[in-house]
Amino acid sequence: MQGLKKMNIFAAEAKQKSVPNEETNPSHVDARLDIRHHGDVTDYQTIGSPFVDDAKMSARNVDVFYAEKQAIIDVSLDIGRNEVLAMIGPSGCGKSTFLRSLNRMNDIIPICKVSGQITLDNVNIYENDQDTVLLRARVGMVFQKPNPFPKSIYENVAYGPRIHGLAHTKAEMDEIVEHSLIRAGLFDEVKDQLDKPGTGLSGGQQQRLCIARAIAVSPEVILMDEPCSALDPIASAKIEELIDELKEKFTIAMVTHSMQQAARVSQRTAYFHLGKLIEVGDTKDIFTIPRHQLTENYITGRFG
């Protein structure tokens, strides 16, 4: 009875604006999950190969706190140039939090504190002189739920380039919009209705519109937070295809709950558990010969 009440309080807290629901309360994740790993905060070691030679972004000893609660514990991880890195793990393991700290999206949440070092092209993005506007233009983001602006399809894509002053004439802007929509594989479906509201599209189309919006500012890295979780398998397949094409030009880090998806589109996979980075490695290795018991439990479906 009391437990129920507590859950209700959590639910109420989760409703509050801009506080991500799971990550704030890692403690209420089922304790059984932590079968093998009871270790202290500091004495764990990430298994596998978190570092790569030519890293686009790299995190070193990153801790993230929501007020008193630690959501990310001492994570060090590289994201290689033009690779797709998949982050998997049970709900509340901190993978989304980690993703959002890569473009300082967590800054919006006042109680969130990040320590450690995250670099983009060897420059610490948490230095004081780093401007989040520039950072977010270089590190774009696609969210879990498709969130097009309540404006026309054209405006959705043109907004980023416009505020950053990337196009000087209408023709240049048209070019950017068309190009982005083509890259997002949406152009043929919407070319006759660019002035229609973006919110009128189907879920899968909306998510591709959001991807087009993200790539319109030519970012170097794209972060995707469970981009297919609100979509049906057909729409998901399209997005996966798209991610595969996009890696030619962009570096992509994605969070996913679908292990098949991670296996299909990513080159490297990182497994998070209760805020810790348990294992990182080539995707095929993680899914065929996982070295950590928790990873194995998770990918074989024993929980999660």
Partner: peptide
Amino acid sequence: IYQAAMGVG
């Protein structure tokens, strides 16, 4: 909406 706008910088 905030996230979407912040996300494009």
